[in-house]
Amino acid sequence: MRIREHKKPFGFEKPSRPHGKIIIIDERCKGCGFCVEYCPQDVLELSERFNKKGYHPPEAVNDHACVNCGFCRMICPEFAIYTVEDEPVIG
């Protein structure tokens, strides 16, 4: 197709992608690591800190990479993590 001959997408100097703000409710977490293991963007890691129950809640180490897919929210059995839409990331 002719469109493929264009080096860049129409109208955008830099493409944007969705970005999510990650909210972790520490005290609900039981440290299962599901979100860390299955985050498609590798945003999360288990933190060093403890919550009141003695588990290590996750923390966002690569916040920038989050695309607000919501996988962490869905896979979390404790309802302890979710994302909300943030300003899209350009480039």
């Binding site: 039981k30 299962c32 599901f34 588990y55 869905m74 896979i75 979390c76 059995p77 309802f79």
Partner: peptide
């Protein structure tokens, strides 16, 4: 329990 699948 932690890592139980029912919550999912």
């Amino acid at each position: 329990c932690p890592t139980c699948g029912i919550g999912v």
